[in-house]
Design a protein around this nucleic acid. Sequence first.
RNA 1: GGCGGGGUAGCCAAGUGGUAAGGCAGGGCUCUGCAAAAGCCUCAUCCGUCGGUUCGAUUCCGACUCCCGCCUCCA
Length: 469
Amino acid sequence: MALKLHNTLQRDKGLQEFVPLDPQKKKVGMYCCGPTVYDFAHIGNWRTFVFADLVRRTLEFSGYDVTHVMNITDVEDKIIKRVREQKTTLREFTGKFETAFLDDLKALGCREPHQKPRATEHIAEIIALIEKLVARGVAYKAADGSVYFSIEKYRGCGCCYGQLLKLNLDEMRAGERVASDEYEKESVADFALWKARVPEDGEVFWPSPFGEGRPGWHIECSAMSIKALGETFDLHLGGEDLKFPHHEDEIAQSEGATGKPFVKFWLHGAHLLVEGKKMSKSLGNFFTLRDLLAKGFTGREVRYLLLTAHYRETFNFTLDGLAGAKSALGRIDECVGKLREIAGGTTAAPNTKLAEQFSAALADDLNISAAWAVVFEWVRETNKRIADSSLSANDAAAALAAWEKVDSVLGVGAKAEAEAPAEILALAEARSAAKKAKDFKRSDAIRDELKAKGWVIDDTPKGIKLRKL
RNA sequence: GGCGGGGUAGCCAAGUGGUAAGGCAGGGCUCUGCAAAAGCCUCAUCCGUCGGUUCGAUUCCGACUCCCGCCUCCA
């Protein structure tokens, strides 16, 4: 089924069918705005990265050969400030958060991007791009030594600034902060491509034809995405707050330099609320993934919860919801576990119904809620068939194969059962013996003892089952 | 002030011009020595408020109201 997406470039024109630029309709280039590594990423950031992972997995599920690029912004105002405060080096400081970021990304079950370019390793490309813009007359060097992008000049050559949203630069509140901007721009809307070195930058600067300095905020994305994916590529995604100015400026820089359309599809993920409120440290609803793991939740539970709502809707992330995620995943685990038991070593081609309904839901602008509904209906039907023993080993294997197919998109897997150690097994056997002898007092005592040791014993029609708490 | 997204059961969340998916929680039942676990069933005369269009609106239009986002670093 044809995948339809909401392209921000089209705004209110509705959904647009996704067709890759590749003449073979096979290869897809996808760029996702990655982290600025100045701290641990929070749950709001993770929503966007899990969303990007969903897009990538959906494309791969649909048979495309995706090249997923995610930048690491490792030079920026906040980073420089903290490097100075902590008396460390840029690389040491950013390296720590970059590693943490990639660990968290993995914990959330996200496929690792194929390329993760760092801004500091692409200074040459950035400078080259700026030189191109200067040569084309849409960028200028100001008295302060910085290089700025001129929106007026850009518009003057027939280019459109304001592709992602309706912009009315005159009506816009050129806020107090902008007015008091210390930079010497010709126009408030202009933005820095190259920031001239200032004493506060310390050791963080690079030589350039414009003088010593460092890249502006947006330019690294243009330089690195063009390098990795070409001057025009398929998909660019990020959080909705990045539409303006970041993405708008990226388009201006890129199209201003190449004269070609930059990106075919722009996808933006909505923000989330935590416990119904905007996240803030003072409200106590500001979570990093680490905070949630420390509360006993798992990465897959967080992933599940982040994947329950449509990407363009504000989502209310709650701790209650996270507890609910645990239960919901437990039902899937239970069902898949039973299927594995029935299937034994049998393998079969996947059932088509589940995957077909699932992909139809996703094809509709990634309607993940509808996709989950398909999954849970399948769980209920499967459970019924398991209950009335109408499932053969072959049926179970086919169902399992179908589940694995949809899980290649969901990425929640199924929890493997923990192996009980010998001591626990011995206790369980003793309990079974006592139970068989109808010594319920003793069997219950052993059950309590097992519980104290962290294991729960379940009686099933097929015998006992040990479960780790 | 400009631009944009929303208000659907206790909570989370899809969706449709013809009478409301799914998940969690709750309730009932099955299984069990009792439990637990699991499974099955059940759970919105109603979709922020008020008007309008329509045979019919939660879905379209208008007004109002509340919440949220961008315009400044931001996922």
